[in-house]
Design a protein around this nucleic acid. Structure first.
Lengths: 155, 155
DNA sequence: ACTGAAAAGGTAAAGTT
DNA sequence: AACTTTACCTTTTCAGT
């Protein structure tokens, strides 16, 4: 993985906050030619530094009235079991994202459901019903705030 | 907030997984005219159903070698204190996202740091040093998997 | 509300420094 | 490696259905 220069970081910073901007405007903000900018962005994408671009959807508008996180512990705990759990859960429409943790819990399962009955059903049917799931603690998400600032490290 | 029809949901589903697609291809995938598609997307954006579009960055490539989540409890716990904490933390480059929780913990703080020394420094200086933070439990994130499937609810 | 065609503007590939 | 130019293609607008 090649080292990123200052221009690359400025491209990433701007797109991290708003990927809707077109190439011409992006180039103007940074102070480089559009063709140069386009080439940089392409390279960042093809090299995997930019993993993808996505929209953020207002979940309430599509019926996802409740967000919750289930913190679970697994027993037994093997790589195979962990990967299977991840792959299975990622198929389900309720899942927003999964955190495989080292610490007090093995997984944080971040999900969106229509109401508390849906949450109850989902937790029983898709989580506690699994053999490897030993304990489940479900908590409500009152607010989820995404940072608009790209992490930066001066190396 | 107006009700979404099937075409809107298909637009959201496709863009949720890949916002890089251009309008012409998006329209073709759905089977509507590009002008119609563009109008729909604009309406979804202006109405706030699409909250924004962002790139996902490979954090390791910019020096973020470790991801962690700090679970904290607050005392005292008031709306003012909670909002102040959120606004302060969102300014810091290490923060990826924040979850305000109802349950065992008050906040999950998801962050990216360069190494374990950086993590130690950050937790002491920006989290435990705050008067309202009563307890902190920091855990490593081994893997964070974002679902590529937009949550769906049949209503 | 969707379509189709025309005008405007951005993209991508060429050659140049 | 980055800039400029130009041809091409997409986006966007608008009159019509």
């Amino acid at each position: 993985m090649k080292k990123l220069d200052d221009i690359d970081l400025r491209i990433l910073t701007l797109l991290y906050n708003n990927a809707d901007i077109n190439n011409k405007d992006l180039a103007a903000k940074i102070g480089i030619a559009p063709s140069t900018c386009l080439e940089r962005v392409k390279r960042l994408k093809s090299s995997g530094i930019i993993k993808g671009s996505f929209i953020e959807v207002n979940l309430k508008s599509i019926g996802g009235n409740i967000e919750a996180i289930a913190a679970i512990r697994l027993q037994p705990y093997s790589e195979e079991i962990v990967n299977k759990l991840r792959d299975d859960l990622l198929q389900l429409p309720e899942i927003i994202s999964l955190y495989h943790m080292g610490g007090n819990y093995d997984y944080y399962i971040h999900m969106s459901v229509s109401d508390s009955e849906h949450l109850r059903q989902f937790v029983f049917q898709e989580i506690t019903s699994r053999d490897e799931v030993q304990t489940v603690e479900t908590s409500l998400v009152f607010e989820h705030s995404r940072s608009s600032v790209l992490p930066q490290f001066d190396d």
